[in-house]
Amino acid sequence: MPLSGKNLLGIAGLPVSDVRLILNTARSFREISSRAIKKVPTLRGRTVINLFYEPSTRTRSSFEIAAKRLSADSLNFSASSSSVSKGETLIDTALNLQSMNPDIIIIRHKAAGAPHLLAKHCRDCAVINAGDGMHEHPTQALLDALTIEDKKGKLEGLKVSIVGDITHSRVARSNALLLKKMGADVWICGPPTLIPLDFEQYDVTVTYDMLEALSGADVVMMLRTQLERQQEVFFPSVKEYFSLYGLNRKKLSAAKKDVIVMHPGPINRGVEIDPEIADGDVSVILEQVTNGVAVRMAILYLILGASEEGSK
């Protein structure tokens, strides 16, 4: 059974049945990565392009490995910033890439909506959003859901607290959307300067008090503090930020005993998370990375392989 849409542009609009399908498929693919020969021929002859306009370590290599383990040919296209307007380059690049007949283009871009623009101009191939500005990062939310479900056996009814810079976080938006879709109790916490207007529209609880957010939490998801944005006035100092919203052992003791701590990476050690926690038993940060490969394999497969089988 294929996904309901051709592209994966965001969690908004993705039906629960698709989420289930992706998570279940990812579980079945996980075993491939533990083999000595980590490759299956499923997507042989298919071409996947990684079009990354922003720096990325995890997501890009994760997509690349996922494609390779399914035997697809993958090409990394790192668009460095150029003097010409980037959006103009985007459409031109898209049309050029499309002329080479790829099956999937995976795009990361600093501008929200860039994958939608790409999809509008590349009608012959599928588009996957690997992060667009402050908008969405759907594959991150899906791998997070897989990680939580593995650890907790469910998503429904869990108290999940997302803490940090919510305004600039596509991870927060996609996770809020996905976790609510799956029935979790989502809490959002950070300084009011970093929580956008009406985040409550996602039916989440917003608090500025970290202890309230952490109290009884099953899952704590820390977000990266974007230090490069420090020229704007969001908080007075890293020191004060850490004292209010940094995750340390003391604050974490308010959570459930079997709490897990997540982080989409890259971590700013000592800014939003105490290294002791990041490296400790409660941390599932590296499992998130492992699950990232499985989820992306599942998505590539469901967009390409499954639809082909379905049409046979």
Partner: peptide
């Protein structure tokens, strides 16, 4: 415009 829609779309708002 800054508000519900800008938050959802991840676009910088001007209030």
């Amino acid at each position: 415009n800054e508000g519900t829609v800008s938050t959802e779309l991840g676009l910088r708002g001007m209030h």
